[in-house]
Design a protein around this nucleic acid. Sequence first.
DNA 1: CGTACCATTGACGACGGTCAAAAAACGTGG
DNA 2: CCACGTTTTTTGACCGTCGTCAATGGTACG
Lengths: 229, 229
Amino acid sequence: MFTQNAIRTGFTRRAANNLPAPAQISVCSLSDSINLMGATIPYRRNAEIFGENESADYVYKVVKGAVRTYKVLADGRRQIGAFYLPGDIFGLETDDLHTFSAEAIGDAKILVVKRSALIALAARENEVACELWSMTGQELRRVQDHILLLIKTAKERVVGFLLEMAERVPSSKHIELPMTRQDIADYLGLTMETVSRTLGDLERDASIELASARQIVLHDRGALGRLNS
Amino acid sequence: MFTQNAIRTGFTRRAANNLPAPAQISVCSLSDSINLMGATIPYRRNAEIFGENESADYVYKVVKGAVRTYKVLADGRRQIGAFYLPGDIFGLETDDLHTFSAEAIGDAKILVVKRSALIALAARENEVACELWSMTGQELRRVQDHILLLIKTAKERVVGFLLEMAERVPSSKHIELPMTRQDIADYLGLTMETVSRTLGDLERDASIELASARQIVLHDRGALGRLNS
DNA sequence: CGTACCATTGACGACGGTCAAAAAACGTGG
DNA sequence: CCACGTTTTTTGACCGTCGTCAATGGTACG
């Protein structure tokens, strides 16, 4: 995916010289670099990975488990910015400080790599520079989509959340949610109660099935898509 | 759309003639590069500058006037992503499609530069590559702050909007709003009526004064900041 | 001076928040 | 394996904020 972007933007040295990029080489040198250069660290449930306004010295990649990033407002309201699942990179900043705090949702394993090392690599390898930029752009698009969720009705937000999660797991019908109702609520700008009630309503509509609180089966994907307007 | 194509064609011709030789550009900022390499184009009130999902071939900088970027949902609801004022750069994508549409709010002058030219420059000048990345990161932070607005009460959103605008204009007490109440509403995820009523409430509190609908004076900045929680 | 467009104001209702309690799930140690 | 305490989730009753619909007032521009 990253390589694809690099080629399209014409940002790599290869593309700038009009040489075709071999299709067989690494799909994503940034992700590969993190795998090679990083150290795996275990975090326990609810452990803080980094805090808002802390120095952004490291970049992170989820190996196992899930992560939430969030901000807490003056009055205690919490807004969750994103959920990160295995394979996702997070905590990459263009500035020197983290804009969000990050916590492990359950027990997790996280790859950690020095940001300065990636930036040094980017200075030599144009492709890596491009992928860093691309990564931030991807995050930007994700947040922009998040905004579109926040202006909708409660039902649309919950459906939007379920579809978003469904796209990110292997089997897109059965989804296992690592986070609590409160986490979902703080992501969607709703209350826990409204999230719970709305999921109940969707089950009554037969659009979904709550196998357990954290195990959801999407039955009528088409109907859900229509609700998602 | 018709106008846009005509303008773009015109721009391409000019740019080909006026583009300085790459070697003459040494170390300079992204903004300077745009000033040097760009062509100024006038847009009339409500004219489309680019559309969502159109090819992102150009990057833009407001010279005069103001710009709104937006998306329209299936059911007609419109979400404004950002307002851009003189000096602001917009329309820079890491992918090759625009994620939002952009329109001039009033009559405007916009500097336009080929994205490929900036990317080519970035491939040679590390500093420019860094600034492109930084630019996207700045946009990311802006959108993240926007999310924090959208989870607040109507009063807090309106106050947040006013403070945000106040920070961006020379005199931070008197602010001249280029946009309509509907634009503000679509930016804040509220209705026109609620924005109007809330501004009225703030005036009754003596926190602000509505010299005219578009001319607002912030009286009690401290009180506003407290409301902004 | 008239015609759009924009802004304000009012009445009313629905959606979602708040508070409270019960039920279910989970983990821990006996 | 069960008993117990804690956390999470669900459900209910009520209420406030903000959206909807409608009418009026203001402003800019031809």
